[in-house]
Design a protein around this nucleic acid. Structure first.
Lengths: 298, 298
DNA sequence: TCAATAGTTCGATATTATTGAATAATGGAG
DNA sequence: CTCCATTATTCAATAATATCGAACTATTGA
């Protein structure tokens, strides 16, 4: 025999448990002939008879007793395993592993973090911060957050924010020295501090919009970071004009440490999206997080 | 869920074990679509997805990992249980429980006992000696031996001996004193030593045959035993004419201690039959015993 | 001995599983 | 970067299994 005839065993164990074939039939929700047939089938497959049966009573044969002893616990374990899986899926306890960039953390997660933790005391958020794209399946991560909804179509994408406003900024002293650009083409006379995603092998383009038309300007560059924090740091140190999300440097803008330029030419970025494999659609913890994020969005 | 969807789990575990859906299909001996379908069905029943799947690889979800951890051992145990049952049935080791009368033991078992034990060193014979009929199923006994083939039709009956010859016997001194009967009717002037089976509530009739016609004679009786040994003992003590199987008193006949009478009127008894529930037909130990008994019969 | 009950048989039917061919999607090789 | 080999999936048709209902058989207790 290759595969154990598990359905037959199921029926067999039920008969033993219920004490009679008819009772087993009722317990299984089928008719008596079905049970009778299944038992016979099992015996045929095993090559041994399992029960002495008269019309009035049933009694185990030696083989039946052996099967009962060994298969019953195994079957019970299997039932238990199934239950556990179902409960685990519906549970509001556990760890939710997320992968997101620093910008996504600041923009999307930080604002709801306290509320979420308060509402879901049994959920641990295991947040992996990194700028590049990661294979969230291979890394065992439940969900990621990234810009844009261009995700593989076996992924579910949930918009978390409105379209984002990036800013070009520099220190007032830098701008005093080199001048405040009025038009994107003015940037060609400036030093730019650029960002290159760790996964890409080229810098992110600087895109502008003028009268509904998009333009790309790549000003002279002597500083490139694969990390937005590096870009911000260098910008604050007055090394040139840097690009980042407005939220990232809001505090420095408020304090007057940094100043934005070319605001009217800035091209909006796509919003942040949370994305996760369709397979995680029914993970209750994740559903709770999505609920929280979406309700905050509105 | 009432019953665990075990077939689905079977498929799931195979996929994990084989590493891909196609490999699992080959291992299970079915096509790939079947496996795909079964997996999906299982996920539907559980209400959770178990695997992230791309066309190139599969990866377990959290739920899948839980199921694997818990169900795999249970499934292995189940496979093992089935194997054990089959091996136990085919095994030539073990205990064979028999129920038989003393006469059956002497006539049928004793002559083959040594040979059988020598040929089957791993089989223990657990012999329960009693004269009455026992419910061999309820007593957990594999087979019984009794006179005649009038057994329930869910029993298998195997003839072990030729028809048996009973004898009427007494001591020579008794016969010298009371005369040797020439015809059954002469018994009415004798003392009879009778046998009453423990299960019956009347003595066994003394039957004779004359010119192809059967007759029953019940001579005066002042001694009744529910045990053939008792009958023999009393006969040897000269209390009257006793009835028993010839084999039982062969040694006394040889020594001249006892003498038979009315030999030409004796009616043959049906042979000894071994009988057992059809359910034991495939118990290997029993098959070996039957083989040994039958080969000795010829 | 009879009535009640429990298991079985049998043919018909309903349900499930599987197939085969077409389609879609992934990841590595050139 | 594109193509190709490989893999999963879909869908409809078919095969295989399981179940049902009714008639039947056999056992047990009244």
């Amino acid at each position: 025999m290759e595969r154990p005839p598990v359905y037959g065993i199921e029926v067999f164990l039920t008969i033993v448990k219920e004490g009679s074939l008819r009772a087993a039939a009722k317990a299984l929700g089928v008719g008596a002939p079905a049970v009778s047939h299944q038992l016979k089938l099992l015996e045929e497959k095993l090559g041994v008879d399992l029960m002495y049966r008269t019309t009035r009573s049933i009694e185990l044969t030696d083989a039946g007793r052996v099967l009962l002893n060994d298969a019953a616990p195994a079957y019970r374990d299997m039932t238990y395993a199934v239950k556990k899986v179902q409960q685990a899926a519906k549970s509001t306890k556990g760890t939710l592993r997320l992968s997101l960039s620093r910008g996504a953390y600041i923009t999307a997660i930080a604002p709801i973090l306290e509320k979420f933790q308060a509402e879901n005391p049994d959920i641990t958020l295991d947040i992996s911060l990194n700028e590049g794209l990661v294979d969230i399946i291979r890394e065992g991560i439940h969900a990621g957050i990234r810009l844009g909804d261009l995700v593989a179509d076996n992924m579910v994408a949930v918009r978390l924010t409105p379209p984002l406003t990036p800013v070009f900024s520099a220190t007032p002293s830098y701008l005093d020295k080199f001048g405040r650009p009025d038009h994107p083409r003015d940037l060609l006379n400036h030093r730019s501090i650029r960002y290159k995603p760790p996964t890409a092998n080229k810098m992110t383009d600087w895109n502008f919009t003028e009268n509904g038309q998009d333009k790309t300007i790549n000003p002279p560059t002597r500083l490139v970071f694969d990390n937005i924090i590096g870009v911000v740091q260098a910008t604050r140190e007055g090394h040139g004009i840097g690009w980042c999300l407005q939220a990232t440097i809001q505090e420095y803008l408020d304090k007057g440490e940094l100043e934005t330029v070319l605001d009217s030419y800035v091209k909006e970025l796509p919003p942040f999206y949370l994305y996760y494999p369709v397979q995680n659609k029914r993970v209750e913890c994740l559903r709770l997080l999505v609920d929280c994020l979406v309700s905050h969005r509105n």
